[in-house]
Design a protein around this nucleic acid. Structure first.
Lengths: 337, 337
DNA sequence: AGTTTTTTTGTAATCGATTGCACGAAACTA
DNA sequence: TAGTTTCGTGCAATCGATTACAAAAAAACT
């Protein structure tokens, strides 16, 4: 029972054609007001619901967009997805989620699956381990809009939405300088990812702008977890002239550093200041709340969605938009003397 | 250029029928090995990709499942989605995300949208503000499998995956008793949500099992945020006989309580113990790490996916499965004297 | 060689909605 | 009244893949 009703069912009930029903439902001016009313009422009575699959097949538009992220349960990414969803849902789009687990092969797999599903666009953050770009170019060949957010690869025809990591690094570092810190270290990530490279560049620029020489031994590349932060800061403390502040490209690393500093009995923020990056939720809840750079992920998601929408609107024109959002420094206890 | 190639294109290229191509690609035994090989090769050469929309329309199965949660960027929910995605993706399913923002009207809207999109099932957590159940029954009428996780409504024919909130409440409370706490308060939520009611029941049972009388003034219902935790604990401290421990149904509320206790100079855990619920990521990172009840959301998601799969396997049989997962008490510093 | 059986491929309908074209009827013009 | 518009519907093709059924080709048999 309660089989789905189609326009054919309505047509049969009214002894008219499915074509007429379709036109009536779509408010086609060629249909008389009387028929329209009749069809509408019958449709409501029979509880008709449009089959979006049939529409999609006919029109070639699925009204689905694919979103690919490394892990969906990382707050930064889930917040971006939230932004995308909230922007696109009112327009009738649905968001299909895929995770790469940072694997390039999974990323390729995801892209193919989404293309098979006939998505109208793909919004994604590139996996850390991705080196090739063939799969991205393949998307473009198929004329499917592609938008990178946060982590990108430079490709012709791909729009990107990122935050100004350079600016973020600069502000964080300048803030530490303003606090009177003289020996500012930097914990970075793998420079094959632009975001880490750019944060470092911002750090460097802030130092030189304020007449502070960059010390090579103050810059350490680490993984993005607490353990790495502990180890790296231990290394810094063992230097003949240990630093008096850390700007970390990761909140987790910064947290590890704070833990290690406390182990050494170092007082934060009076003796040592720490600034993280990402504004992970936990940074705010720490007893010693952490200063960090906010990337406004929800806004980033919304912006990525908007860029996608522009792209589908002028599908004939090839747009390559590069949106750069400004980061915000959230000044909290870990850096205010 | 690079228009999508269909089986018709392959057929034309080989001077055979689309039917033959389809069969060859599906490894139909009625097709000769020679033709199969030829078709396969040509398909690869022409970069053929199956159009899942066409398949979906024909078969009536979209291979998409809808997932509805209040907010996707709440760790508990995003972790569940992660579990669902990881379980279903290998089987060719895609996950479509919707958020309700805890609004019943949005929930109804989401369900209709997902049904229109012909999803093969809906996995969801019921919104806090939902009172009706018509929209759920409507899903069942359409013979679309419906699975509730965590927050549920009792409905015939709906499978549910929850954690044993009673058990969680019991264990948390018993742990506090074991620590020597004598006056254990409980911060709860709105009892129209079973989860809060059940956690309370577990709390109550643990008390009576250990010969402790339940004091009405020790049980307060609050919202689920830090502020509410601060206010509620303030109220508790003003009692003529203030408690010496709090079991909170929410990690955020527990955090607020801890902050308030500290303000009063109360030493945790020596003078006062606190246990939260949910194992939000931040609880582990606090300097005074928080004891809390873990709900293993990724596992819950995987289990919800499995239940859904069983349901589609025996679509003729009406299964109503009630899976109850065991919570785990994560004992940390906030409660160990 | 002629007939039956088996193997392989083709024909055409189907899923549900949309849409260009054509047709019949009413309305208007001259 | 005959001819032209206008209006409202119906017919039939289309999107891409699948699949009963039919037909043709090849193989096996007497």
């Amino acid at each position: 029972m309660s089989e789905k009703t189609t326009i054919y069912d309505i047509a049969k009930a009214l002894n008219i054609t499915a074509a007429t029903v379709s036109r009536a439902l779509n408010n086609n001016p060629k249909i008389s007001a009387a028929t329209k009313k009749l069809v509408m009422e019958t449709a409501a009575k029979m509880n008709y619901k449009q089959n979006r699959l049939a529409l999609a097949l006919k029109s070639g538009k699925s009204n689905n967009v694919g979103v690919i992220v490394p892990y969906i349960d990382r707050n930064f990414f889930s917040a971006i997805i939230r932004g995308i969803e909230e922007e696109l849902y009112p327009l009738g789009y649905h968001v299909i989620i895929c995770q790469t687990h940072e694997q390039e092969s999974t990323e390729i797999d995801n892209i193919n699956a989404l293309l098979n599903a006939q998505v109208d666009g793909i919004l994604m953050s590139v996996s850390k381990l991705t080196t090739q770009t063939d799969h991205f170019e393949y998307v473009l060949e198929k004329n499917v809009p592609l938008v990178f957010f946060d982590r990108k690869k430079d490709l012709k025809g791909v729009s990107t939405v990122t935050i100004d990591d350079f600016e973020g690094g600069y502000r964080a570092t300048k803030h530490l300088i303003d606090q009177g810190c003289k020996r500012i270290a930097h914990l970075s990530g793998d420079w094959s990812l632009e975001i880490y490279k750019n944060r470092y560049e911002g750090y460097k620029k802030a130092l030189t702008d304020h007449g502070i020489a960059l010390k090579k031994e103050y810059v350490i590349k680490t993984k993005s977890d607490i353990r790495a932060g502990q180890k790296a800061s231990e290394k810094l403390l063992m230097l003949p002239e240990p630093p008096d502040a850390i700007f970390s490209s990761s909140d987790y690393v910064a947290l590890g550093a704070i833990q290690q500093l406390k182990k050494h009995g170092i007082k934060i923020p009076t003796e040592f200041c720490v600034v993280g990056f990402s504004n992970e939720p936990f940074t705010k809840f720490l007893e010693l709340s952490m200063t960090t750079v906010d990337q406004s992920p929800v806004e980033m998601g919304k912006m990525a969605a908007k860029v996608f929408l522009e792209q589908v609107k002028d599908s004939n024109v090839k747009i390559e938009k590069k949106v750069v959002l400004s980061p915000t420094l959230k000044i909290r206890m870990s850096s205010v003397k």
